[in-house]
């Protein structure tokens, strides 16, 4: 056996399923935005690894290959704040949702 990750076990619980356990008070407005979007944004021109799409624990960020842009599902956000530091091009602006909105942990 090796100590290297062997990918996801076939019966693994998906992030989507994990998020299904959570309650949110859905905010009508986003608290996350990309500082630059479009063809000249670093997501398109420079960023190869796109760590926001591979690391975010709530899978908020997804690369849409067809449209060549990062989609932001802010309503999934569990407010860890990692994306603020993850983006190698400082292109993610993530503030806290307005008072009372967002994730509502029951255990934490």
């Amino acid at each position: 056996m090796s100590d290297k990750p062997e990918g996801l076990p076939p019966d693994a619980m998906t992030v989507e399923a994990k998020l299904g356990f959570l309650e949110y008070k859905k905010s009508p407005e986003t608290h996350i935005s990309l500082r630059k979007t479009g063809a000249d944004s670093p997501c398109v021109t420079e960023c190869k690894s796109k760590p926001c799409t591979t690391v975010c624990p709530a899978k908020v960020y997804e690369w849409e290959e067809h449209e060549k842009k990062v989609l932001v599902a802010y309503e999934n956000c569990i407010e860890c704040g990692a994306c603020r530091m993850l983006c190698p091009f400082d292109n993610i602006s993530c503030d806290w949702p307005k008072g009372g909105f967002g994730v509502k942990y029951k255990f934490g």
Partner: peptide, 30 residues
Amino acid sequence: VRPSDHLERVKRHPALRKLIEGAKTLEYSS
């Protein structure tokens, strides 16, 4: 690596898997 996926592998480590066998997830957090 997505930490939620890492956690799935952690759950299956032989040092842990018998301890959590049959336990039902109530909440995920990060």
